[in-house]
Every structure is written in structure tokens, then in C-alpha cells.
Nucleic acid binder design. Sequence first.
DNA 1: CTTTAGCACTCCGGGAAAGCGAGTGCTAAC
DNA 2: GTTAGCACTCGCTTTCCCGGAGTGCTAAAG
Lengths: 349, 349
Amino acid sequence: MELTDRKKQILKVVVEDYIQTAEPVGSKAIAAEMGGRISSATIRNELADLVELGYLEQPHTSAGRIPSPKGYRLYVNELMEQQRLTLAETERIDQALQMKMEELDRVISQAGRVVASFVNYPTYMATSGKKHLTARRFDLLPVDEHSCIVVMMMGDDRVKSQLLRLQLKVDTGQIPALVDMLNNHFTNISGGEMSRRLMDVADQVSPQLFLLLSQTVSYAVDVLEEAGQREVFMAGANQLLKLPEFRNADKAHELMSFLSDSKENLPVPDDGPMKILIGPENVNAALRDTSVVVASYDIGDDMRGLIGVVGPTRMDYAAVAARLTGFADGLTRLFGKHEKLPPKEDPQT
Amino acid sequence: MELTDRKKQILKVVVEDYIQTAEPVGSKAIAAEMGGRISSATIRNELADLVELGYLEQPHTSAGRIPSPKGYRLYVNELMEQQRLTLAETERIDQALQMKMEELDRVISQAGRVVASFVNYPTYMATSGKKHLTARRFDLLPVDEHSCIVVMMMGDDRVKSQLLRLQLKVDTGQIPALVDMLNNHFTNISGGEMSRRLMDVADQVSPQLFLLLSQTVSYAVDVLEEAGQREVFMAGANQLLKLPEFRNADKAHELMSFLSDSKENLPVPDDGPMKILIGPENVNAALRDTSVVVASYDIGDDMRGLIGVVGPTRMDYAAVAARLTGFADGLTRLFGKHEKLPPKEDPQT
DNA sequence: CTTTAGCACTCCGGGAAAGCGAGTGCTAAC
DNA sequence: GTTAGCACTCGCTTTCCCGGAGTGCTAAAG
């Protein structure tokens, strides 16, 4: 059965009022909010229906109403007005994203902190995709007879490098051959495969070179493994303590511990750019009475990034959704730019 | 005036009892703790003296005593027994530090998380030293006509690299000359100086090369700036909520916000390997009724790392100090090893 | 001079009781 | 279908009371 327009209108008022005040909303307040055109008694009749239908709840007999998860769901799906960011806010977001940073991780964690400060809820960030990262190109740059720089370009165009200390002197003249071998036999394969091939070529080169080769390969394996790992960043968890629903230290502690520990079981938007999970819609027990708004954005190169905001079920969905979309778009743009152009053009300080 | 041995003994019992229970300790409990050899009445007389002298405080007339900051100070300086870690714990620490990680930042933040889980207090980690980082060597590796890898070795032997997308095609043959110029004119100078020199050489090279040069230099400037920045990591802030003194959400929020925001004003051990700051000894207002135990360790290459633990004034100084020292030593060893040897030797998976 | 037992007193913390007030559901009239 | 009126419910805050832990003081004993 469809709700009448007026019922929806009332539901909307209840949700929005409750989002702001965190207190049960009474019939009188609703009547006032709606312009005083209908009396509180009428509202009460409607409220009773809405409770009956499961969209609202009553903490106790003589209290106002609060939205149920079902009520929030209807609100989010139909009633919520898409909030537009003010120009000033859009600018602040763009400005916040004007980071000149090299490392993907840094950019992401920094962005997470900014988002958290914008929405005033705990925010997590992660990346997804990128199952099989491989090396695409190797170089070795001799430094002196005891050390050598290894440079590796990965499948996603990122370049990693490190100084290797050599246990044995290596004849510089042989380096190019070694680089050839690396590029011919150790590119575009998985880390495990690399280790295996290393064994195969063991007897084809001199011991000194083999040592250098194996150092290089194990560096590559480590880097690929580390780069493939998905890392999760958390920011703004302390925001929770400002909320009335988390003034109870135990509740706050429980959720915060979950948030700072869990690397895996945070919600991801399985499809579409944004997903809203309300209370019990969360599979994860620790999130059962919180809501999560999570958006994804394009990092380029088959990878997607993830921004999620965790809050009480009465969180300001419209505001959070708008800001999250703003950031997601901004980040997509940021990474798109990186993709096409060099990171910076301006040579002056 | 020196305290009698018995007074010190009593003070010690009060501190250690209070550290455990967070409740004012009464004369009777002290008498029992001390073996029942002296009566509670005697203890009461002594307690009155200790209050008089400022080592203890009385929350209200008819309550037990709690240590004052001065009392904790005496305890830490003279009374506290140096706690030895059990073999099992030492092993757990060593095991936790068996990380094969490339990035210094990662190692540090990971270590911070481990420390936090060991001591059950919020823990911060940072690095100090390293004021003027410079580039020591450049390389450019052509990839194709639109891109090129820049490799830079810094003063501390770290190597950074990135793929540059070129706006203009560059003649590969001219790259070596460019690398020479970089190595001759842009090494061992500050980032600001680099930008200035870039202007000087503007008319000595072709526009294409200059563009590449300026991209390289601005990459270098960014990296040096980012690398020189001291970054602070926080872990385990949620541990606070378990403590009775932070069950009040406002207090907890205040401290947690301070901890997660402040990058600069966290205590550092100005000399020696470890420093303990008790309550009001903290210059920073936000830390006035907390204590901080901070240790430093050697990263090598003029840099020092920092582990700090923040807790209530009644924190378990002996336990924290022992574990912190254990970790600091472990980290010094870890970095010492990295310094001398290649990061890994074992080529098998 | 120090230690100890005894005792009246203080004050915190918890629990019960009371009053307040916001809000409801119901009835009857419009 | 809507509204005014009204009795009623129930959580929250305040007040009050009481138990108990712990003190300070006094006076006696070592």
C-alpha cells in the first residue's frame, strides 16, 4: 500500500527533525513545522498509522516518534532532496584536493582526513581492484662498487626504486646484461612466478650477478606484494564522541575499536557510485545500529577508490551524500588529471 | 627534607595501588599491603604528613589518598622498580618487529599500532632530525617518446622515482646531457635553491628539454619537501575510552581531538633515550592532566625516531617504560640492520 | 616520642520517592 | 475527515535518605 502524500510529508518532517535534534518528535512540533495548517490531533492520527505501518517507532508510550530503519530507507529513497553544495563548499573541496602529493596512500589518507572534517563523522578510505600487479620494466643504476639502485616500473605505471647494498663487488660492465635478463624473464609475471624463475636461471650467471639478481627480484616481490595489498585508512573517529548516541563510553569504544581494527569488513558499494546502508541493513554486527554512506571513485588503471562515512542511523544522509559525491568527483578528476598530464607544470616555486 | 624510608614505602604502595584501581586508597588497605606490621592509625599519621608535604592529595575530607604529580615524580625517580620484560614478551616484541616493509613511514606507523596494542594506551610515533634533505643524484630513464622515468637519490640514501608524462617529444639522445646538468647543478642544494637555478639555466637548453628539466626539478622539490616533513602517526586512541578517567565523553573527546590533530606539539625527549612527563609538567594545556612517556631510537643517518605513549597520570609507568624501551631497542636494531645489509637476502619464497 | 585502639564525624554514592512536563490516545463535536 | 479537550502515561530530574568507607582526634600503652 502506498502512503498518502501527507503521510510522506509527515515522515519527512519527523526524519529531518530527528536528524537534527536526536530527540523524539512530537505531534505539535510537526504541526508547527508544516505551517500550522493542520492540527496536532490530525497529525497524531497520521503518526499512529505510520507506526502501524512500520515507518516510525515510539520509544515509549508517551513519547514522540522516531524513524525506524524502514522509515529512513523510504526517506533516503524517495523523500530526501538532493542537496546541492554551495559554490563556496565546492571551492573548499577543490581547494582541499589541491594536494601535490606523490604517493597514492598519502593522497588517500589525507583526503580521508579532509572528508572527515567536512562531514563530521568518522570516515574510512580504501582502494579496490588491482588483483595482479606485475613488474613491467627493470633498471639497475650502478652507484659505486658496493651499491646499486634498482628501479622497477609496475603495471600501473607507478615506479618504485631503492638503493641496494651489495655484499659482493659486481662488475659494472655486466649490469646491462642483467637488466636484459630481468626485463626478458621477470616482467609481467606474478611474484611467486618470479621467485620460481629465479631458481631456473641460477646456473646461467656468475655468483656475484646472481646475488644481485636475487636481491633485485626479492625487492620486486616485496614491493608488488605490498602494493597489491589493500590498505584502509580511518580518520575522524573522535567525531563520534560528540554525538549523543555515543556519549556512553562503552558504545563509543566498541564502535571505535571495530573501526580502527577492521581492515576487511567495511561496506563497499557493490555497484553504482554510492551506497547507503541503514542500521540493520549492515551485515556486520558491529554496524547494526549505525549507518554507512559509501561512495567510490575512479583512480584510473582499473582501480577504484572508496570513501565511506560511518554515523548514527540518524545521520544527515542528504548532506553526507552530497559532500561525498563532491569529493568522489573531485578525486576522480584529480586522478584523471594525473593520468593524462604530468603531476605539475608550474616550475616556479 | 628527606622522607623517611617508611614514608617512601607508603607512597610507593599508594601509587601502585592507585595505578591499579583508580580509587583513593585508604589507610587500612595500605597497612594490609605492607604486611600488617604497623597499624592503620600509624599509617594515617604518615599519610597526613605526606599530604602536608605535597606528595599525596585527598579528594575530600573523608576519602583515601591519591598521589599528586609530585608524588608520581618521586615514585618515577626513586621508587619505581625497573620492570624486566619476560622472555615471552621480548619475543613477542621481536616478532612484531619482523616486518618486511620498504617505506619508513609504513614501518613506523605499523610499529606504533603494535606498541599501542602492547601498552593499551594511545601511542604516537614520529621522526625528528633531518632538517635539510637534498638530492644527491639524478637519473632519467626514457620509456617512450611521451614518457620518462625520473630517479632521484636523496642525501639519506633513499631513492624516489616516478614516471613523467612529457608534453613534448624529447630527443632521447639529449637525455644524458640533461642528466649531467641535473647532477652538476641541482644536487646538494635546497629545494628553494633548485627552483632558482632552474631559472638560471632556462636559456641554456632547448624548450623541450627545459620542460622536462623543470618537470624533474619540480618533482624533486616536492619529494624533498614531503620527505623533510615530519609526519606524526597516532594509534590506539580508542584505548582511552576504557579508562575510568575518560568515561566522560567530553574529556575523552577533547584529548582525542588534540591527539589526532596535533602534529607539532607532542612532547619529545630532548635528551637521553626516554622522558616521562607527569601531568602539569606538560607544557601543553591539553595534556595537563595526562602523562606522557616518550622514548627515542636511532633510525640511522642522523635521524631519530620517537615513540610516545599518552595516558592518565596514574598510568603504569614501570610497565610502559619497560615496553617502550624494549621497542625502542628493537627498532634501533631493526634500522641498524637495514643500514648495513641489504633489506633481504633470502631469494626463496 | 611513637604507636595503637577507640570513636565520633564527614562525605560520597546509590537507591527510593516525588514532582514536572512533554506527549499521547480517546472521545465527542464540528 | 478534522479538531478541541482532557485524562493519562512515563521518562527525567531533583530531592532526600541512608550505608559505609575512611578520616582526624584523643587518650592510653609501649
